[in-house]
């Protein structure tokens, strides 16, 4: 950085502190974990209360789409990680390709999710609908939680895509470089969190029966 830039930064009170930036990100991720933690708590309470109906309702879900989405999301975490490693080594092209692949996979995840929800809707499984409220309480709760938790997760996927799209632009415009990649690193952390939450959602809804 030139002296001139230093002076401007100084007056703006903005300084560069990569360790601090990472620390802030981890603290933010902790709040995200606690946010979903509240939902997992609710899930645990109702699963304990209505074990049989949770099992019946869980069998309705499409395990193959769930598995496919798990594979997609895990792979997208790998590509983000490679993208960060690439920029650290100064390989901009590889970083751009990997980030783009991540975005494509995130999109694929959402498309699958859309079709999955669509199928549920076409079977009348819509929160608050007549068909839904006529089901036993445990099943209402299972689907309620299913829509809320996967919905909130999908929202996080969308936010993650927006962040990663910005990072892609930054890498292309050399705002994120070999010597200054903490933004990309933090976005990667966020993406891993989105992945992590899914890793818990998947067995709770699709596998445990």
């Amino acid at each position: 950085m030139s002296d001139h830039q230093d002076a401007v930064l100084e007056v703006n009170h903005v300084h560069r502190d990569d360790v601090g930036a990472r620390m802030g990100m981890w603290l933010f991720l902790l709040t995200e974990v606690l946010l979903f933690g509240g939902l997992f708590l609710v899930y645990a309470v109702y699963r304990y209360q209505y074990p049989d109906q949770f099992r019946i309702a869980g069998m309705e879900l499409n395990t193959s789409i769930g598995t496919l989405n798990t594979i997609i999301l895990l792979t997208s975490s790998l590509t983000v990680a490679i993208s960060i490693a690439a920029i650290q080594k100064g390989n901009k092209l590889l970083s751009v390709i990997m980030l783009s692949l991540t975005l494509v996979m995130a999109f694929m995840f959402l498309v699958n999710k859309f079709f999955e929800w669509e199928t549920k809707f076409s079977h009348g499984i819509i929160p608050g609908s007549k068909e839904m409220t006529s089901k036993p309480n445990g099943q209402i709760l299972f689907y309620g939680l299913y829509f809320v938790m996967t919905g909130l997760h999908a929202l996080h996927v969308i936010i993650g895509m927006i962040i990663l799209a910005f990072m892609l632009v930054f890498v292309i415009r050399n705002k994120i470089t070999e010597g200054n990649y903490v933004k990309l690193e933090n976005s990667g952390l966020y993406w891993h969190l989105v992945d992590l939450i899914w890793i818990f959602l998947f067995p709770l809804f699709y596998l445990v029966q």
């Binding site: 929160p127 608050g128 036993p136 445990g138 209402i140 709760l141 689907y143 309620g144 829509f147 809320v148």
Partner: peptide
């Protein structure tokens, strides 16, 4: 949406 998570009428 009336998902029922806290509503006792729906099991919450």
């Amino acid at each position: 949406f009336g998902v029922g998570i806290f509503d006792p009428a729906l099991g919450g």
